[in-house]
Design a binder for these strands. Structure first.
Lengths: 214, 214
DNA sequence: GTCTATATGGCGATAGAC
DNA sequence: GTCTATCGCCATATAGAC
C-alpha cells in the first residue's frame, strides 16, 4: 500500500515491454516495428513506451543489449571451459539450440540488426573482452591435437553455427514445406537437432580420422 | 532517333531499378527501405519509381518474384538430375554458393520476407509444381541406398543449407570478427566453402559408413 | 503512472509542366 | 519519360489532465 493513492507501478511492466519489443522488432525489423504494435503485444498504452524508454531508438538499444547479454555468455562460457574439444562442441550446440528454442526470435533480431549497423555488435563483443585472434589460435591447436589435421576453425565454426541456426531462421518456410506446417513435429525436429548436430560432426571427425590415417 | 523529340526511354532503367531495389530491400527490409533510398541507389528521380512500378508494394512484389526466379532453378534443377546422391549434393552446394557469391543480398532478402509473409514463398513453390512429399520420399530411399542408414533427409538438408547460408547471412559480423574485416580474405573463404562443405559432408558419410559397419 | 489529445515530421503517391 | 511541387496519411513524440 502506498502512502498516496497513486496506483503502484506494475513491477513487471518494464520487463513486459522489453519482451514484447524483442518479439516485434524480430518480426518486423527496427523500422517496420510500430510503437503501437509493441504496446499491443505488451498489453499497455502506447505512450507508456515513451514514459519508460523516451524514444523508439532508446528502446531498441536497450532491447538489443538485453538480447546480446543472453547470447554472449552461452557462447563464451563453454568456449573457455576446460573440457576436451569434441565435448565442448557438443555442449556448445546443446546450449545454443536450447537458448534458441526458448528465444526463437533471437537470430532474426540479431541478423536484422547487423545489416542495419554492422559495427555495433562488433563493439559489444570487444567491450566484453572477447579476443578473436587468441580464440582462433587456441582452436587451431586443439583441432590439431584432436587429430583433425589442419581443418580451419573458421570453417568448422561456420558449419556448426549454420547447422544450429538454419532451422530457426528458416522456420516459417521450412516448417511449411518439409513438415506440412505441423508445429509439434517441428518442435520435435528442433529437439532432435541437439543430438543430431553433434552426432553429425562426430561422424565427420571419424571420417577425417580415417582419411588422415591413409 | 524517335519521330518526336521526346528523349528515348533508357532501356535499362527498369533493370537498374530492380537491381537497386533488391539491394535496398535486402539491407533495410521492406518497411525500412525508402523509395528515396532506392532511387538514389539506382541513380534516378524518386517519382520515376512510381512511373515504372506504380507503388512500393508492386515494386517489392516484382523484385521478390525476380529473386525467387533466380533461386528456384538452382535448387530444383540439380535435385531432379540423374546423378548419384553424393555428386548431386556436391553440385547443389557448388551451384548455390556460386549463386550467393554473385547475389549476396539474396538470403537476407528472402529471410526478411518469410517473416513478413510466410505463405507467399510457399505459394510460389507450389505454383512451380514443387512436391515436398515425393521429394522427401525420394531422398529417403537414396540416403538408404547410399549406405547412410536412416538419416532423416530433413536433418541433412538443414545441415547443408545452414552451412551454405551462414557465411552470407552472418557476413557483416563474421567477417569483422574472424577475418579482421578483410574483405578479400573473406571472399577467398567463401570460395573455399564450395569445396569444404561437400568435403565435410563426405567425411560425415564416411564416418556413418564406419559406424554402420560395426 | 496512465491516459487523451495534439503537435511535428516524414514518406508514399500523384498532378502537371516540360 | 523525367522533373518539380504538393497533397494526405501515419508514426513518433510530447503536453497536460487525472
Amino acid at each position: 500500500m502506498n502512502e498516496n493513492n497513486q496506483p503502484a507501478r506494475e513491477p513487471d511492466t518494464e520487463k513486459r515491454i522489453l519482451e514484447a519489443s524483442a518479439k516485434v522488432f524480430a518480426r518486423k525489423g527496427k523500422q517496420g516495428a510500430r510503437m503501437q504494435d509493441i504496446a499491443d503485444e505488451a498489453g499497455i498504452n502506447r505512450t507508456l513506451l515513451h514514459y519508460y524508454f523516451r524514444s523508439k531508438d532508446k528502446l531498441f538499444d536497450t532491447v538489443f543489449e538485453m538480447v546480446f547479454a543472453r547470447i554472449f555468455p552461452a557462447m563464451t562460457g563453454i568456449m573457455s571451459s576446460e573440457l576436451p574439444f569434441p565435448e565442448r562442441i557438443e555442449l556448445f550446440i546443446e546450449a545454443y539450440t536450447e537458448l534458441l528454442r526458448e528465444n526463437p526470435f533471437l537470430p532474426v533480431f540479431v541478423f536484422q540488426e547487423i545489416y542495419e549497423d554492422p559495427d555495433r555488435l562488433l563493439k559489444l563483443f570487444m567491450s566484453k573482452g572477447f579476443d578473436p585472434e587468441s580464440t582462433l589460435a587456441q582452436l587451431r591447436s586443439e583441432i590439431s591435437t584432436a587429430g583433425l589435421g589442419d581443418m580451419d576453425p573458421r570453417h568448422l565454426f561456420a558449419n556448426m553455427m549454420g547447422m544450429v541456426l538454419f532451422p530457426f531462421i528458416g522456420r516459417p518456410i521450412f516448417q511449411a514445406i518439409a513438415f506440412q506446417g505441423d508445429k509439434d513435429a517441428y518442435e520435435e525436429f528442433l529437439e532432435e537437432r541437439t543430438s543430431h548436430i553433434p552426432q553429425f560432426m562426430k561422424l565427420a571427425f571419424i571420417g577425417a580420422g580415417v582419411q588422415n590415417q591413409k
